[in-house]
Amino acid sequence: MRVNRILLSVALVVVALVIQVSVLARLHLPGAVPDLLLLTVLGLALVYGHVGGALVGFGAGLLADLAPPADHAAGRYALVLCVIGYLAGLARPDNGRLRSATGPMVVVVAAAVGTTLLYAGVGALVGDTAARHVGLPSLLFTAALYDLLLAPFVVPGIMALARRAEHDPLADTNSAAQSPDISSGWLSSGTGLRIGRQRNALRVKTARARVARAGRIKGVKRL
C-alpha cells in the first residue's frame, strides 16, 4: 500500500474506533451495537480493492481486539474484518466510483450479517457462547438495521477521502520527471523544420543566381 493510503487508513480507523467505543457503545441500543469500524473498512475496501480491504480490515480488527474494553481473544475480530474487507473489495468498481447507492447498501447489509455470523462462529470454536444467550437472529437483524441506517452518513464520505488521497503529488512529480518531455520534442521538431526550410530557400537562391550568371556570360559572348 502507498504511504498516503496507510496514513489515511490509520487515521480513519482510529477515529472510528474511538467514536464507536466512547459514543456508540454507550447508547445501550437493543440488540447489536452500530459498527462504525466495519463501515470504515467497507468504505476503504470499495476504493482500494480486495487486497487493500483485507489489509485495512486486519489492522482495524486487531486494533479493536486490543483496545479496551475488549473481552474476547485477540485476533478474533481481526480475522473477521480481514475476510469481510477482502470480500467487500471484490465489489469495487473498475473506476473506483459507484454509479448508484444500491450496490453499497447491499454490501453493507451483507457485511453486517456476515460479520455477526463469522464472529459468532469463531467464538463458538474458541468456546465463547455469548451470542447464543443474546439471540443470534435479533443480533443479525439489529446489526443490519443499524449499519444500514448509519452507512449513508459514513461510507460515501470515506470513499471520497480515499479517492482524493489517491492523487499523490510526489508520485505525479516523479512520473512527470520520468516521462519524456513532449513539449521539447515539439519544439525541436519545429526548429528542425524551420532550419530545413531555410536551407531549401538558400539552395533555390543559389541555383537562381547560377542561372542568372550563366545568362549574363552568354549575353556577353553574343555581343
Rank of each mutant, 00 (worst) to 15 (best):
G157I: 03
G114C: 09
A177C: 03
S138Q: 14
D94G: 06
A64V: 05
D94L: 14
S138F: 14
L148R: 02
P93A: 05
A177K: 08
G43W: 11
L125E: 00
N174M: 14
G49A: 04
Y86W: 12
G127M: 03
A73R: 11
A70Y: 11
A60F: 09
S138T: 14
Y77P: 00
T129W: 13
V83I: 15
P156T: 05
P169R: 07
L161W: 08
D65L: 08
V106K: 00
G157W: 11
V113E: 05
A165Q: 12
P69G: 13
G53M: 08
Q178C: 10
T173S: 13
S179L: 10
V109H: 00
T40S: 11
R163V: 03
A78W: 02
L79R: 00
G123E: 06
A54D: 02
L136N: 06
Q178K: 13
H50M: 12
L38I: 01
V122F: 15
G43Y: 10
G53L: 10
G61I: 07
H72A: 05
V56K: 04
A88G: 03
Y77L: 12
T116L: 03
T129E: 09
L161S: 04
P180R: 09
H50W: 10
L170F: 11
G85D: 06
D147F: 02
L44Q: 11
A130F: 11
A151C: 09
A143C: 00
A60H: 08
A54C: 13
L46S: 07
T40G: 02
A91H: 04
L117Q: 00
A144G: 09
R92S: 11
D65R: 01
L140D: 01
V154W: 05
A162I: 04
L81K: 04
L149T: 03
G157T: 06
L136S: 02
A131N: 07
D168C: 11
L44S: 08
R99A: 12
F58D: 03
L170I: 13
A177L: 15
P169S: 10
L161E: 04
V41C: 04
S175T: 15
D65P: 04
G114M: 14
L38N: 03
L90I: 09
V56T: 14
A60M: 07
G52Q: 10
L136M: 08
G157P: 06
V113A: 12
G121M: 07
V106T: 09
L81W: 02
E166D: 15
L44H: 05
L36N: 06
T142E: 02
L125C: 00
A111D: 01
G121A: 12
V106D: 00
V109T: 04
G52A: 08
A165I: 08
G85I: 09
S100Y: 10
T115N: 12
P104A: 01
A111C: 08
R97A: 07
A74T: 13
G96F: 03
L170K: 13
H167M: 07
P104T: 02
R132C: 00
V107E: 03
D71R: 12
M105F: 09
S175L: 15
